[in-house]
Design a protein around this nucleic acid. Structure first.
Lengths: 338, 338
DNA sequence: CTGAAAGCGCTTACAG
DNA sequence: CTGAAAGCGCTTACAG
């Protein structure tokens, strides 16, 4: 174990002051070209790298952004985490990833985060108590809810899709295909995504003088969705069960398709049309060809990065709420031939 | 923006020295019960939390472990990242996640990591130059290669599956099913996983007096695998193409199945049997029912955590190399009826 | 058990 | 442009 070289070591070797070394590594600081090159030479010889921890202590900027995630089995999130990391890296920020197991855990995690003086926090599909949200705001740490809507009037930003419009699109597509008995398999009852998708879906059905034929809850989990599908499609008589179903996300929709085909012997789309939400990569796989409402992950990430940088630079910036457009991707599961 | 309370603020309010506050938060330090409770009361009133950055500066322990990943579209990794994070969190460590885009980028990333004084580094399916590996060793930072084998004699630890045994199992399963024309779709040519899986596969074929009938390369990517499948199965005459194929991982195997069925009109397993590697969750999906060689992700994660903690606590510990058993999971893609 | 003090490795006014 | 010095918020011998 070799002790790393410090700015003092470099200063000594270069024959300059420690301040000069520090200035060499501070963009925009005034250092003579001659001094700078002496410092760089010495730094190279010693393998010097500025200690980011010491810098953070004094500047109060860690250049780290915490991302709190959970449910990585939902295929939408790994991709988001990857792209989000890359996006922040482009701006010189690093991602400190936290996995929250239960929803209640987010608060405890956040408290730990604050000890690390992260510059900002992105909550992927997680919520946090208003107490913690206020602590973050008080500490000047921007918080962005990703794929969740923040309560109005708060200090917390949010970036989400127009889930309500997505729900309407799903209903419109199924109605246009002539379906009359249409079911809905819900995600988490208390999530804003589920609430808004279902509201849009029901509103569009109502606009056609119809209402949902059956409704079960899958809690956004694979197993939950299998159960929900069994409950909804157990009727032996075809007229007793939906001929189409809107599932609150693709992760569940795939489980539903498996259950319909494998367990219940029903064909998709001939016996039951299925439409999901997210347009995860797996929706395009040949084994499913799942129609879906696409969330624009790229735009969501760009909006997140933009808001984060704005809020880090301007602490008094007001909370922003971004809602992005979605679009229908039709595939085989609703009868579109590829 | 309210300035966070420091140990000095707490000390003043509690009427004790700053040292006493620090000791209260240092497990094992000697503080009178009376003093401790005065400190805790004051801390509660001020919402005090020790500053982890300042602590890191002086203790040289950040309790952060860097995880460098890439290829999150391979479904094996998100699950590993999630479980690994949770596992380290149990021991009071946090994961700093870095996404390496190209393989060459890992070195640059590592240099940045060292500035944050992470306590350890896990490289998920990435390699690093021997120069950087030495820098880490010199700095006393343990490095673990996950799902890769380290070069012998180095200072870098590794945790991987017995890929060679896995390759043999795949060959054995296909031979046992009576296949004669057996193909192999390779991953990255220069990866240890591909090398070992292929070596075991070929060795087992050779043991039966056979050799691989066709070989193409999919580079561990979805698109690469589609291309590799087209190349291998373009022959119109069934006798000209393999009746079974071992694909170097599940991520590619799923792409191969899509190409076989969707594009080439071949049935799995009737026309072509397919076997993959990893046993990702998606392999069990009804749309694929993919036979696979299962990597024991749980055991890999436990081994990684154990080695990491050992090496953090004992800097002079020697590099360890763990190889974990794999097992065959037979499903529909090799003719097993579920 | 407790407090005063040094020091971790930086950044940043300040004076020159 | 440059250097001496203060200070970020802690931990940890050291002396009492």
């Amino acid at each position: 174990m070799v002790k790393a070289a410090t700015s003092i070591d470099v200063a000594k070797l270069a024959g300059v002051s420690q301040s000069a070394v520090s200035r060499t590594y501070t963009p925009g600081a005034s250092v003579a070209e001659h001094t700078r090159s002496k410092v760089m030479d010495a730094a190279r010889k010693l393998g010097y790298r500025p200690n980011a921890i010491a810098r953070t202590l004094i500047t109060r900027k860690s250049r780290m952004i915490a991302v709190v995630a959970s449910y990585l089995d939902n295929q939408f999130y790994p991709v988001v985490i990857e792209k989000l990391s890359q996006r922040f890296q482009e701006d010189g920020y690093h991602v400190l990833l936290f996995i929250a197991e239960a929803r209640t855990e987010a608060d405890e995690l956040l408290m730990q985060l604050m000890q690390y003086h992260v510059d900002g926090i992105v909550l992927l599909s997680a919520t946090l108590s208003s107490g913690i949200a206020k602590d973050c705001a008080d500490a000047g740490i921007p918080v962005i809810l990703f794929n969740r809507i923040a309560q109005a009037g708060g200090t917390v930003n949010s970036v989400a899709s127009d889930n309500e419009a997505g729900g309407r699109m799903a209903a419109k597509a199924l109605l246009a295909a002539g379906h009359v008995r249409i079911g809905y398999i819900a995600g988490m009852e208390d999530s804003s995504t589920n609430r808004d998708r279902e509201a849009g879906f029901n509103a569009e059905l109502a606009a056609s003088g119809k209402r949902v034929f059956a409704r079960t809850v899958g809690h956004y989990s694979f197993e939950g969705a299998q159960l929900a599908a069994r409950q909804m499609f157990q009727a032996v008589d075809a007229a007793q069960r939906p001929s189409a179903v809107f599932v609150a996300n693709d992760h569940m929709a795939i489980a539903v398709m498996d259950t319909l085909r494998g367990e219940l012997g029903l064909r998709v789309p001939q016996d039951v049309a299925v439409i999901g939400f997210d347009n995860v990569p797996q929706a395009a796989w040949g084994g499913y060809s799942l129609s879906s409402i696409e969330q624009d992950a790229h735009a969501m990430i760009e909006a997140t990065a933009r808001i984060m940088l704005e809020q880090i630079q301007n602490e008094s910036a007001l909370a922003q709420h971004v809602s992005l457009s979605v679009r229908l991707i039709e595939r085989g599961s609703t009868g579109k031939t590829p």
